[in-house]
């Protein structure tokens, strides 16, 4: 009986949601004024042929997103909310690995690594770290951004794990960095809600296209994503190595 009731309730809920989103039945009462005021109508009504002043790299001021990279404009500005969800997916994946593999240090010895790898990792690790940071701080200017930059940071830590059998990353530090980055992303969105009316709106001046300090909140979002992705993937690598030692 309980199951039948729950099933009927779910079906009714689904019907309300399906009918509600259509303008003709209008259960959620979409009125014209609300549509006029929403972000969606701004982009629906936007004319492709209007506002086509030529964009000159290094000169154009206060463009809509201010990013020199079109894909970044979409990912970190127009669909920034979607990116927040993607970062959450990665967080859940890292959490799952952590629960399965366990972040406890079993403390057994790993295989000794080769001399050549050991010496060269000392030279390569800082270079890889700097390159990763370069990629996510320049995400609004060049191809790349938070996800590849963060992966590069994580791979530099993977190199340290491979090169030194006694190396242990500071897991607690990475977990804290990850939590702070995730919180900052949401806080940035809420500041946008307060300042501009929409969650994650680009509320800062966008500056000159092509400069390092341009694009409003886009570089801030990408630095946050870079730190979060880097610390999450490093956490996954650490969990994997600990699991391998246990087996």
């Amino acid at each position: 009986m309980k199951r039948v009731f729950a099933g009927l309730l779910a079906v009714a809920f689904g019907v309300v949601l399906l009918l509600g989103i259509s303008a003709s039945t209008g259960l959620f009462s979409y009125n014209e004024e609300l549509l006029d005021d929403s972000a969606a109508s701004h982009y629906i009504a936007k004319d492709v042929n209007g506002d086509t002043g030529e964009i000159i790299f290094g000169e154009t001021m206060d463009a809509e997103t201010g990013s020199a990279n079109m894909v970044t404009s979409v990912i970190a500005n127009y669909r920034s909310f979607d990116t927040l969800g993607e970062v959450t997916v990665l967080f859940l994946a890292a959490l799952g690995v952590s629960l399965l593999a366990g972040s406890m240090d079993k403390g057994r010895k790993r295989r000794k690594s080769g001399f050549i790898l050991k010496v060269s990792s000392g030279i390569l690790f800082p270079l890889m770290l700097v390159t990763g940071i370069y990629i996510f701080t320049h995400g609004h200017l060049t191809p790349g951004g938070g996800f590849p930059g963060g992966s590069m940071i994580a791979s530099s830590f993977l190199l340290l794990y491979l090169a030194d059998e006694n190396f242990r990353a500071n897991v607690r530090g990475f977990k804290i960095a990850e939590g702070i980055a995730g919180t900052l992303y949401v806080v940035l969105g809420i500041i946008g809600l307060l300042a501009g009316g929409y969650f994650l709106i680009n509320f800062l001046p966008t500056g000159v296209v092509g400069n390092l300090f341009s694009g409003g909140i886009i570089p801030i979002v990408y630095v946050i994503i870079g730190l979060k992705v880097g610390s999450e993937i490093t956490g996954i690598i650490t969990d994997m190595f600990n699991e391998e030692v246990k087996a």
Binding site: S113, G114, I116, L117, S120, L124, L162
Partner: peptide, 20 residues
């Protein structure tokens, strides 16, 4: 520079583990 620094290291590490 990156290729010179990484390619030989990677191959020597691969071959070392193959020998082991």
């Amino acid at each position: 520079f990156f290729i010179v620094a990484t390619n030989p290291v990677g191959s020597s590490t691969l071959i070392r583990s193959a020998y082991r």
